[in-house]
């Protein structure tokens, strides 16, 4: 079982990296303080890595396409739009008074509601073309983005600066206040689809084969799309949009594990994403002194890999 062995190796590598990240540079005087900062950060990193890897794997299976990521649904733009709208309508003080957790729940709720509305609208039509859904999502994304920028132009510049940090979280400026809530929500979301996970292998055969083999296609797809919206909201709220990490890790997992079984693919993608983020954070914090945000590095590498993938594949 080559696949399993490779998963063990990946897990071991991740364990070492996490330990390195936690323990490197500790000394007897500051260890308590340093750990109290590093542990939540590590958990957040792993949570972000898992939700991105998980949602991207599922998304690629649903779309039967190796070169798409959930970011084309326009959900991250919607998140920014919701944040801007709150500030625009009620001011940043309201945002502060509401508290991060409430804001997070509100945003996730709105995003899920929006996706459901979008799916409902499109799945009602006869030709349930998932690519059509994506294109609509994408345009909506541009729309929300323009609208958010528009409101940001109108907001008092001082107020804008105050909220900018919250709106554009990054790995160096992680929104760890909502960590526990995000953890619980993602856990519940995954629990909610747990018994559908076995259908993923079948879904990768395409719609007709899936229906033939007794999968309630429309229902299962909608359920997974809701899961994807929740996971995307979680990672966007924690660290902001990282477009290409998902693309990168799912394809690496496929290359490395050479299997179609989601049991392994999902675990593999989660491990690779966690390794990439922990390693990236380690380098960014300890070597580069925070000089380049790792989301930019990841998007850069992910982007190059994507172009490589397009050129290499004989058919897409």
């Amino acid at each position: 079982m080559k696949t399993k062995q490779r998963i063990y190796i990946l897990s071991a590598a991740l364990l070492i990296l996490v330990l390195l990240y936690l323990l490197l540079g500790l000394n007897p005087f500051i260890w308590r303080y340093a750990l109290s900062l590093r542990i939540p950060k590590t958990i957040a990193l792993l949570l972000v890595a898992s939700s991105i890897a998980f949602s991207s794997t599922v998304f690629q299976t649903l779309t039967n396409n190796r070169i798409l990521t959930p970011s084309v649904l326009g959900l991250d733009s919607l998140y920014l739009f919701i944040q801007s709208l709150i500030v625009f309508l009620f001011g940043s003080s309201t945002l502060a008074r509401l508290g991060e957790n409430f804001n997070f729940i509100l945003s996730v709720g709105l995003m899920v509601a929006f996706s459901l509305l979008l799916f409902q609208l499109l799945f009602k039509r006869e030709e349930r073309n998932i690519f059509f859904l994506l294109l609509v999502g994408l345009v909506m994304g541009t729309f929300f983005q323009s609208l958010s920028t528009f409101m940001q132009v109108l907001i008092d510049p001082n107020e804008f600066l105050v909220i900018q940090n919250r709106m554009f979280a990054s790995f160096n400026n992680m929104n760890t206040e909502i960590l526990w809530l995000a953890l619980i929500i993602s856990f519940l979301a995954v629990l909610f689809t747990l018994k559908d996970l076995k259908n993923l292998d079948i879904l990768s055969l395409g719609r007709e084969n899936a229906i033939n083999l007794g999968v309630d296609y429309d229902f299962v797809v909608k359920k997974f799309l809701v899961l994807i919206s929740i996971l995307v909201s979680v990672s966007t709220a924690l660290v902001g949009p990282i477009t290409f990490l998902g693309l990168l890790v799912v394809n690496l997992a496929r290359e490395l594990l050479r299997t179609f079984r989601h049991k392994y693919l999902i675990v593999g993608a989660i491990l690779i994403a966690s390794i990439a983020l922990t390693f990236g954070q380690l380098i960014a914090e300890r070597l580069l002194n925070f000089s380049t945000p790792i989301s930019i590095i990841i998007n850069f590498i992910g982007g190059l890999y994507f172009i490589f993938l397009l050129l290499k594949e004989s058919k897409i």
């Binding site: 798409l68 084309v72 994408l138 290409f244 994507f306 172009i307 397009l310």
Partner: peptide
């Protein structure tokens, strides 16, 4: 266009 947009964002 979907692939084109992906390429553009890359």
């Amino acid at each position: 266009p979907l692939i084109g947009i992906m390429m553009a964002s890359i």
